[in-house]
Design a protein around this nucleic acid. Structure first.
Lengths: 160, 160
DNA sequence: TATACTCGGACACAATGAGTCCGAGTAGCG
DNA sequence: CGCTACTCGGACTCATTGTGTCCGAGTATA
């Protein structure tokens, strides 16, 4: 099992978007992270479809965060990019084979699925406890406060 | 992101193996769950490679649990079948692009990766808290205690 | 000793993710 | 008011991984 690599890109983009109030084109974000702009566009589209970012068209268009950074959790981003479905899918194999339990007795989900889903819930809860604002703060603490403002000026200015 | 479907099969097989002290052939397990025996063999091989089950060759061979059911966690099975690697891989994109942070400053992992890995740890911890014995007990409680003993007799007897 | 049954790894096929491309639409500028 | 240039959006193709299958090596049994 491996998570889509686009999640990492999307998260970094969200952190960067924190530093800008004006729309940022996808090409700029791609150049900033040195990744394929065509592919990054796909992830940004997923974020836009989920309503996390808003797309502005036209000459000076781009993407802006719709909500405040404190109210966007990592779970939101992961669900938007990687899909909302559960990672573990129960195929109800207990209802198959010679010892199949009748469908009437399957009011509660299979114990195996219950345990797996409980673990997933723990994972989701941990993701929901962290917001984009938290990440931006950590980046500030790690790379120094001047990093994000430097990026901001680079984004707004037309530099290549 | 979707977990390998073989994990479900492997878990159910481990629960079934709880009920038998004698080796159980892969074909029997496949017929019991009504799944492809050839593919199930692959999952069982993964479990054997991880040391969770022991393979006995020869005419009346098969698979047996190596450890006690109480000391085999769901995390062990998941890691064996689905791979031990982390689901989120950090490509260190902070070290790329015009604002790349120098490698010297990257003593601690990227904040994004830290948060994602923390969530994964919560997931693993939840999986490690449940054992195969717990699952077997839950199945007993759900399907009635006669289910597993019935399966046991069916496994040991040569019935098709 | 021959046999029949077991596992084990090597071999194809399909689905999903990764990556790319061009067209529709819109804001700015002459 | 029209044009242009820039933006996003979805449709297409390729690579990788998971799914499924097969036959050969090895061993306990009769």
């Amino acid at each position: 099992m491996k998570m889509s690599g686009g999640v990492e890109w999307a998260l970094h983009c969200c952190v960067v978007l924190t530093a800008s109030n004006t729309p940022v084109p996808a090409a700029k974000l791609a150049e900033l992270h040195d990744v394929s702009s065509s592919y990054l566009a796909k992830q940004l589209q997923s974020l836009a479809r989920a309503g996390l970012i808003h797309s502005v068209q036209g000459k000076s268009g781009g993407y802006v965060l719709t909500r405040a950074p404190e109210s966007v959790t990592l779970l939101d981003v992961v669900r938007a990019v990687d899909g909302p479905g559960p990672t573990f899918v129960c195929t109800e194999i207990r209802q198959r084979g010679p010892f199949a339990t009748p469908a009437d007795a399957c009011t509660t989900p299979c114990p195996v699925a219950r345990a797996m889903w409980a673990a997933e819930d723990a994972w989701r809860q941990a993701l929901a406890a962290v917001t984009i604002a938290d990440l931006a703060r950590d980046v500030d603490a790690n790379s120094g406060p001047e990093a994000l403002v430097g990026i901001q000026t680079w984004l707004t200015s037309g530099a290549s």
